[in-house]
């Protein structure tokens, strides 16, 4: 049994847990940055920028993440290679699209064709992070946009009356105050993000669900030392426990923050808090 659980394949699944956690840890701040940029753009007085921000939020939010993942990574990859191609090989005379093939000069390949496997994997991981960040950034932008609007107008007017510039109003008054309003939405978003990780295999990253399926599928004695029937049930049970535990931990952490924020508010929640205190 101990031998079975330490095969190279099992090592891969343990490793992939780390991959998923790392992806979440990187994606969350990047998506927040995208969201912040999107929301700020949507609020902009400069019309094209505002339209860009609104368009980004509306389109990406409207499309199921699965549909997005299925073609977007390849598109993103080709887009990067095309840009590098334009920069690095200006005198290339062949078309980029030869029939169905997408061909760029060797120097523009990302990553370089002869680089090690781990570089390819890191690049794939980076693309996955970027795709996740773009998708969830749109949702974050929506939340932050709402939060910015929720900051009482009087606060901004007061700031203006004190002679603060537009920029100062935004950074010193609006941004510090909006987090209170954004937190419920953002914490919900975090929960959704956790549960979107099983879709990673669509992005070419071998995540825990991929390995659980691979390990759980029935094995005939010819190809493995550990033949077994259909064990996917047990592996998925393990995944279920992992996700539930992860959600629970996040919930406890977010609850603490939320408790601090509802304190003293004249709502049913605040009332209940006061009664127990």
């Amino acid at each position: 049994m101990a031998c079975y659980l330490t095969t190279g394949k099992h090592m891969a699944i343990y490793w992939s847990v780390g991959t998923v956690l790392l992806l979440l840890a990187i994606t969350a701040p990047v998506a927040l940055a995208f969201g912040f940029a999107g929301a700020a753009a949507a609020r902009s007085r400069f019309l094209p920028l505002s339209l860009l921000g609104r368009g980004y939020v509306a389109i990406v939010r409207g499309v199921p993440d699965i549909a997005f993942f299925l073609f977007f990574v390849i598109a993103l990859d080709q887009f990067f290679e095309w840009i590098r191609h334009e920069v690095k090989c200006p005198d290339w005379d062949q078309p980029i699209r030869q029939g169905n093939d997408f061909v760029v000069c060797a120097a523009a390949k990302l990553p370089q064709g002869n680089s090690a496997q781990w570089i390819h994997e890191t690049y794939g991981f980076f693309l996955a992070v970027l795709t996740f960040a773009i998708v969830f950034g749109a949702f974050a932008a929506n939340v932050l946009y709402g939060a910015m609007r929720a900051v009482p107008r009087a606060q901004l007017e007061t700031a203006e009356a004190y002679g603060m510039s537009q920029r100062q109003c935004f950074w010193r008054i609006l941004v510090p105050q909006m987090w209170v309003f954004a937190l419920p939405g953002l914490s919900n978003l975090w929960m959704v993000l956790i549960k979107a990780t099983p879709l990673l295999f669509l992005l070419g990253v071998e995540d825990i669900v991929y390995w659980a399926r691979e390990l759980g599928g029935s094995k005939t004695p010819r190809f493995t030392d550990y033949p077994h029937g259909d064990w996917r049930m047990w592996y998925f049970l393990g995944l279920l426990v992992f996700y539930l535990a992860f959600t629970r931990v996040s919930e406890v952490a977010l609850d603490r923050i939320m408790k601090r924020l509802t304190k003293g508010q004249a709502t049913t929640g605040g009332e209940a808090q006061r009664k127990t205190a």
Binding site: K9, E214, T220, R222, T224
Partner: peptide
């Protein structure tokens, strides 16, 4: 693909 024994599959070592 790595999921179509005996043509290609992932062995116990994960290769």
């Amino acid at each position: 693909e790595g999921a179509y024994a005996p043509y290609n599959f992932i062995n116990d070592a994960g290769e």
